[in-house]
Every structure is written in structure tokens, then in C-alpha cells.
Design a protein around this nucleic acid. Structure first.
Lengths: 226, 226
DNA sequence: CCACTTATGTGATGTAAATCATAGTCAACG
DNA sequence: CGTTGACTATGATTTACATCACATAAGTGG
């Protein structure tokens, strides 16, 4: 891959878009390219955090496993987003695993290089703070949902969150939705079937389309429409 | 309160401890003092984020309420820790409420002032990044617990987390522990009673003492000792 | 196009934890 | 010092969801 292409990818990322050409090519010189098939792991929970990643193309999910082996999807990211940053900042092992959902290309920047770059680019630090703040806010909202809302509402909120990021067509299986909402695949299938009957969503294999966002929103808020 | 006292408080905080005297007194000049009784609210979810806070004395909890009104404790903080920062960085309403647990004094710094200060102090930004990173890591760990672990293990993990921050004497009621672990007070009482029978903890009204941390850790990890 | 895998769908049954109910205990405070 | 209200405790009952068990599609790769 040409350096200019790397620059272009960085320029299109959320974090680095504000950099000038010089800065971009400086960073691009440090970045290495890596490619993954669907289901391949970029890193595993517990690995040493050598790299910080930006997605060039594709989609990845960040997952943790419970003591009984059940998978939980903490987050997923697509082109232009960064991941693996928390571990890199702290210098502690990755707190979760990252796995490609589809064929994915990423740019990796060595921890040391990235920290050096940050130290010399204060406005980048502010941007990172904003991104981390947003992610923390999301995580706290989800904590409350998992602790206090029922399956129906948790699922509705997950769907709305996904819709706000990717539009009304949501490219995930029931299995994946279940792993985000902290419930079983069967329960997700039953709940989505209900949503279909009520005309709130439609679906084809592997994806789901939100038809009536208003109704979904009502479901997510109040008690299950008694 | 004298400016010198404010400086001293800031100096003892986690975030500002690395500042020099000039910087501290500059910040101290911007800080206002506020006092709260136990159970008083510092701010409510949805309020405009005017201030960022550092605790001078006392303890506060950050809470959210589920649609059915159930309280969930997202975090608690004590002397030297900051809170309210996520909203301040993003400029969006506070995503949760902050309530004093005991009589508490805080220093508040106006959003605008704090952002200006940050922009001119890059090493502070790095420190903030580290703190946010740590909080994000914690939140993600708890997400996985809430989604995939059973009540017994969730409680054990909460207790260990608290122990690592405050020592083996944990000054919370069953009610508060329940609100952190996302379960009911009754369940928490039953579970702590079991822990007492097994000699893992002892307790007096309003606090709980970890007697056998090793056993508690075993409980938190594996399945409930089949 | 046929075997094979992955995704969806549905019923029967089990169970962890919530909910409901009631009571004893301790601290605070007029 | 007795009343009040928060905290702890424990039993009985309910329930939302998990688990188990199969069945039917819908892609996929040889």
C-alpha cells in the first residue's frame, strides 16, 4: 500500500481528519497495514497492547466472554473508527478481544509512536477526550439498561442505537443482537418476531429493517405498552 | 474559604496534583466552593453542564434511574476525585445525577474555564485521557458482568472492586450494594447472609467487612463452587 | 444440485431472581 | 425513653427469561 493511500485512510478517520498533510504523512509513515478475514481476531483480551488501530475498510466487534463462556459484544466499529485505544493509553493488556465481522483492513500504529504523536499534538488529545467521553456516556447508559430494563426494552434500545449509527437497515443476526443486549438468541428471535407481527420491523436473513421508528422508540421508553 | 485552601484541595486531587503553584492558584481562583448534606443532589440528569467538580471532602454517588424508577449506581467518588466531566467535555446535558452520600464539599470549575485551561495544558489532557480510559475499562467490565454473570458473582466482583479502592471495610448498605450490582435489596441480603455463613465476610449495620478475600475472589471467578 | 452449515422459528420445561409479605433490630431524635 | 424510620432478615409465590429440544428455511461450497 502506498503511503499516500495510508494518508487518505487516516484523513477519512474520525480522529485524524483535522490534521494537515504533513502531519498525516508523518503518521502514515508509522502506520502498518493488516488484513483480516471475517471472524479472525485482531487481538485477544489479555494481549499486550502493542498497537492502536484505525479501520480502513470493514467492520469489527469488541467482545468479552463471561465465566461461563457466553460472548458479550461491548462495541462494534466500522470504517474510520478507532479501537484498542484504552489499552494503549493505559499500557495494560487489552481488556477485551477484537474480531473482524467482515473482511477488514486496518491501519495499526505502535503504542509508543502514537503516544509521542499525541504528546506533541494537543488538539488531538482534546479530540480523543471527546471520543472517550462519548463512549463512556454510552457505556453508562447501557449499564443502566442491563441492570434495570427488561429484554424487550433493552432490545429496542440496541436497535435504536444501531439505527442512529447505520440507518434503518441493521446488518446483524439475531445471535449478534442477543450478544449485544445480553440475552439468548432464542429470546431475541421471539422478541423480533413480536416486533414483526406488530409491523415495527421487517427482516431478511442476517439483517433487520426498522419500519416504524416511532413505535420502537415508544417501546424503548415506557413499560411494554400495557 | 481562602484561595490557598482551594489550591491545597486541588493539589490533593488526582487530576491536578502535577500542577505547579502558579497553575494551582490560577485554577483555584476560578473554583467555587459548594457544600451538600447527605442525600442532597449536586446536579440532576438532564441539567446543563455548567460545572466540572472535584471533591474536597466527603463521598458522592452518580446514579441513573430505569424507566420503572429503579435506581442504579453508576459510580461513586470520594475526596480527590473528579466527576461531571463527561458532560462538560461534550457540552451535552449531564447523562446522570450526582448525589452526596455523606456531608460533602466540592470545588466547581466552570465548563468554559476548565476547557480553556485544558487547551493550554497538554499534559493535563493526557492525564484526563488516562482517567477516562480507566473508567471506560471499568464500565466495560461491568457491562459484561451484568450481561453474563449471576447475582452471586456480580456481588462478589462489586465487593472486590470496592475493596481495592477503600480497603476491607466497605461502608455501604445492602440497598446501595444492590443498586450497584443491579439486583434487589432482598437478593443482596440473602447473598450477603450466605457469605457471612461461609465466613467470607462479616457485617454491622451499614457496613460490611471482607474477612476472606481469597475465597471471595474464587467466588467472583469461577462458577459458584459447585 | 446436493450435502452442509448457519440462521430462524417454536414449543415444553426449568430456575434464578423478582416480588410480595411480614417481622425483628438498631440508630436517631424530639 | 419511647416513637419513628432505616436497615436487616426470611418465607411464600410469581415470573421473565434461560435452557433444552427439534424443525424448517436459506444460503454456500464442492
Amino acid at each position: 500500500m502506498l503511503p499516500a493511500e495510508k494518508s487518505e485512510i487516516l484523513k477519512n478517520s474520525l480522529i485524524f481528519s483535522s490534521l494537515n498533510e504533513d502531519e498525516l504523512s508523518g503518521l502514515a509513515g508509522l502506520a502498518i497495514e493488516r488484513s483480516f478475514q471475517a471472524d479472525e481476531f485482531i487481538f485477544w483480551e489479555g494481549d499486550e497492547p502493542d498497537y492502536f488501530y484505525v479501520i480502513a475498510e470493514g467492520r469489527i466487534k469488541v467482545v468479552k466472554h463471561s465465566s461461563s463462556g457466553k460472548e458479550f459484544i461491548i462495541a462494534f466499529f466500522e470504517s474510520g473508527e478507532m479501537f484498542g485505544e484504552v489499552a494503549v493509553f493505559e499500557g495494560k493488556p487489552y481488556p477485551a478481544s477484537a474480531q473482524a465481522i467482515s473482511a477488514t483492513n486496518v491501519l495499526g500504529i505502535r503504542r509508543r509512536h502514537f503516544l509521542d504523536f499525541l504528546a506533541t499534538h494537543p488538539q488531538m488529545a482534546m479530540r480523543i477526550i471527546n471520543i472517550l467521553g462519548g463512549r463512556l456516556r454510552d457505556a453508562q447508559g447501557r449499564l443502566k439498561d442491563l441492570a434495570g430494563e427488561r429484554a424487550q426494552q433493552r432490545l429496542a434500545r440496541i436497535l435504536l442505537m444501531l439505527a442512529s449509527r447505520m440507518g434503518h437497515t441493521i446488518p446483524f443476526t439475531r445471535q449478534e443482537l442477543a450478544d449485544m443486549a445480553g440475552m439468548t438468541t432464542e429470546t431475541t428471535i421471539r422478541l423480533t418476531s413480536q416486533l414483526k407481527e406488530r409491523g415495527i420491523i421487517s427482516s431478511v436473513r442476517g439483517q433487520l429493517i426498522i419500519v416504524d421508528e416511532a413505535k420502537l422508540r415508544a417501546l424503548a421508553e415506557g413499560p411494554p405498552t400495557v
